[in-house]
Design a protein around this nucleic acid. Sequence first.
DNA 1: TAAAATTTTTAGGTTAATCTAAATAAATAA
DNA 2: TTATTTATTTAGATTAACCTAAAAATTTTA
Lengths: 224, 224
Amino acid sequence: MFNSLHMHSFTEENYLKAIYHLSEDNSMAVSTNQIAEMTNTKAASVTDMLKKLADKKLINYIKYQGVTLTESGIKAAVNIIRKHRLWEVFLVEKLGFKWDEVHDIAEELEHINSEMLINRLDDFLGNPAADPHGDPIPDRTGVIKHKKLVRIADMQAGESGTISGVSEHSSVFLKLLEKLGLTLGAKIIISELIEFDGSIMLSIDQHAERTISREVAKNILVIL
Amino acid sequence: MFNSLHMHSFTEENYLKAIYHLSEDNSMAVSTNQIAEMTNTKAASVTDMLKKLADKKLINYIKYQGVTLTESGIKAAVNIIRKHRLWEVFLVEKLGFKWDEVHDIAEELEHINSEMLINRLDDFLGNPAADPHGDPIPDRTGVIKHKKLVRIADMQAGESGTISGVSEHSSVFLKLLEKLGLTLGAKIIISELIEFDGSIMLSIDQHAERTISREVAKNILVIL
DNA sequence: TAAAATTTTTAGGTTAATCTAAATAAATAA
DNA sequence: TTATTTATTTAGATTAACCTAAAAATTTTA
């Protein structure tokens, strides 16, 4: 079943995705332990899988030196991410799910294998540029248009911008933002940086004035 | 991952579905070989799985005597069928697939596990009663409303009806019906039964007059 | 109803993905 | 730069789902 050129097992796909996401921030080779943590497995299991993925030329792997994805590994990972994000848009836009409810379901849907399905879904959704969390959706050729985003934590008093992404996707965090009115598209203006604890006062959509912790501010991304 | 009350593995689900479909016509206990054929496995593998399903109280199994589904086995199977058919409606109604293209994709989608997802999909689709092939969609409590359908092969000259189902789901067959204009909703009138080879002449939607083989006629289902 | 054919089960293996425990390599600290 | 700690890999098992070949049960046929 999982033998054709573009077909990788459910599990292989999850490793590829994990490696991709880990190398997004890192920009360095990814370590065995990092992968183990992300995939909820043990280091020994990861080593086994790395050998397998290396045999398939999906990763560059040298013992003890971590891994990077090859061209075809990146392609495979990006395709899974495309599917994940399109399904998330579907769940929110068409089925009325909230942005904090869609991750686990998309995690299953992303492994459905049909190019035609995903391209038609893409069209049905109007070829969205971003998922419900603001993350960019790769197009059908694998190209990702990244926006220049800034963390609220890095902004100065007086600066303003539009909330366009988050760097923390947990349900608790997303529910909090929802409650605070800090959702995608909200326009914010930084009123004051509190020196004592690094918390930040800002106004949201001209009216609500709020103070948020530095920890929250680090995980909200804005277009200036 | 597959441990909670309603969770069965991908493979277990496929066996349950196979047993369900085999006992639809049979109405008798289903044999090991029948299951092996339907699931593309060998009899020995089936025996292994039957023991497992029996341990889980999903089937009634006595060595050498075939199997029937238990109440909870039926529940599980019907739920999978519900998901399969709802996804087929989605693929045809929303994504523009043809009725002969959706089976394999739905075969994958049917294993996505989220009650909320499937109920919302159901609502999004307008709670359809039947899938693109006319097969009834179980409601969220597992109830299936069967229509009284008659095979064209069993009709008499002069009788009329509306095509409402098929008993053969292969792509070749469905494409043929498409070409002949014998799709769901078409109104037919039997003009003549050809004694020589059992083929049948009929009119479709008042105009087209066609002759179809007995083999084709056996697999088209009609409401009188 | 005994022999032959068929069906089903058992026995024993394989593969993918996982694990624990032990061994080895690399990084850090004294 | 040696010793200690940490990270990674290897060795050896386990589990689910499958297989082939042989044995046992059932069914069919003569």
